Computed example of a mutant assay.
Amino acid sequence: MVKAIQVGLGHWGFSWTKEVIPKVPAVHMAGYVDANPEAIKRVQVELGIEDKRCFLSLEDAAKGVEADLVIATLRTEAHYPVVRQALELGFNVLVEKPFASTIAQAKELVALAEQQNRILMVSQNYRFQPAPIAAAELIGAQKFGPVNLVSVDFRRHAPSQGYRYWDMPDPLLADMSIHHFDLMRMVLNDDPKRVSCRTWNPPASPFGHHPMGVATVEFEKGTIVSYRGSWMSSGPVTPWAGEWTMDCSEGEICWTSRDHFMGKAGPDRLTTRVRDAQPEAIALQPLDFADRTGTLAAIAKAIASVSVPARFSSGKDNLHSLALVQATILSAGREGAWVDIAEVMA
């Protein structure tokens, strides 16, 4: 049993407290932390959390309870100081994405985790779904030969779907596309080499920053990914993980994942098609722990067994996903000029 302290009980953090953590039996909650007394009161009143397990600071929680893990579910700008403090106090850490605001901060946290001999994991929850796992296995087995081209489309109309973060910088690339970029790396089992990206803000948009973009990503093994994303689309809504077409030398793999929104939910879908043949729907294996419960179960397993589960998004691994985000933002600022990932990583 892994004992944990959750830090950050706001809107998204409360969702973790109520909907995610209780579904992973390998994790026992030792403490809850938030600097806002109202957030503490909410978990006590609505979820029946005892006062003795609630704290206004991580330092107080570390003194008051025994724990192995900190679950950091705060706003992005608070990730770096909280994760750093947690590692310095000797905790393993699971942190929401993106796990730092800059590559320099991220590298520092990765180095600190290694120095402290602790596990740092980023909650890239889209990895823990049946379709991308099946796609990764098909690509890894070269079921249809080498990959020639990957096309990814993400379409949502934020104004009619309850989106609230109109002033967030880079609402597409930094907040949403990081999921898609991380899936590219996982499914292809490859890292990006360079990227060209353009973003823009259409007329009548309530966004303060660019909610639409297109990017071309070149990977180290030569695969090219064409990515199109929009928070202002009037087209058919895609699942959260987008719609993927993976064109290989002997056929194609098409899949979608995380098809749920506002009380509606649909299963992941994956079809394959041998060249010049009809598409075939593939039965997907359900997961014991999916999405955010998947990330939490994975780090609990890593702590308990001292082994790294498949598709584990460590801080060190996730540097490459964060670098792809930073590179696309940099390229967009340069009017679509190619940006090498090495430039950002340096």
Rank of each mutant, 00 (worst) to 15 (best):
H79V: 06
Y80C: 07
Y80D: 04
Y80F: 14
V82M: 05
V82L: 07
V82R: 05
V83E: 00
V83D: 08
R84V: 00
R84G: 02
L87V: 07
E88H: 02
L89W: 07
L89E: 08
L89A: 11
L89P: 07
G90W: 06
F91K: 03
F91S: 01
N92T: 03
N92L: 11
V93Y: 06
V93T: 04
V93R: 00
V93E: 00
L94M: 11
V95I: 03
E96G: 10
E96D: 08
K97D: 03
K97E: 04
K97V: 09
P98F: 03
P98N: 06
P98C: 09
F99M: 00
F99T: 00
A100K: 09
S101N: 08
S101R: 09
T102N: 01
T102G: 06
I103N: 01
I103C: 00
I103F: 06
K107A: 06
V110K: 11
V110C: 04
V110W: 02
A111F: 09
L112R: 08
A113H: 08
E114L: 04
E114N: 12
Q115Y: 04
Q115R: 09
Q116S: 01
N117A: 01
I119L: 08
L120D: 01
M121I: 10
S123L: 10
Q124T: 10
N125Y: 14
N125S: 12
R127H: 15
F128Y: 14
F128G: 03
Q129N: 15
P132V: 14
I133E: 10
A134N: 10
A135G: 15
A135T: 13
E137S: 11
L138H: 12
G140I: 12
G140S: 09
G140M: 12
A141K: 14
Q142R: 15
Q142G: 13
G145H: 12
P146K: 15
N148C: 13
N148K: 15
L149C: 11
L149P: 09
V152A: 07
V152K: 03
R155F: 06
R155N: 12
R155V: 04
R156P: 11
A158I: 03
A158N: 01
P159V: 06
P159G: 01
P159Q: 04
S160A: 09
G162R: 04
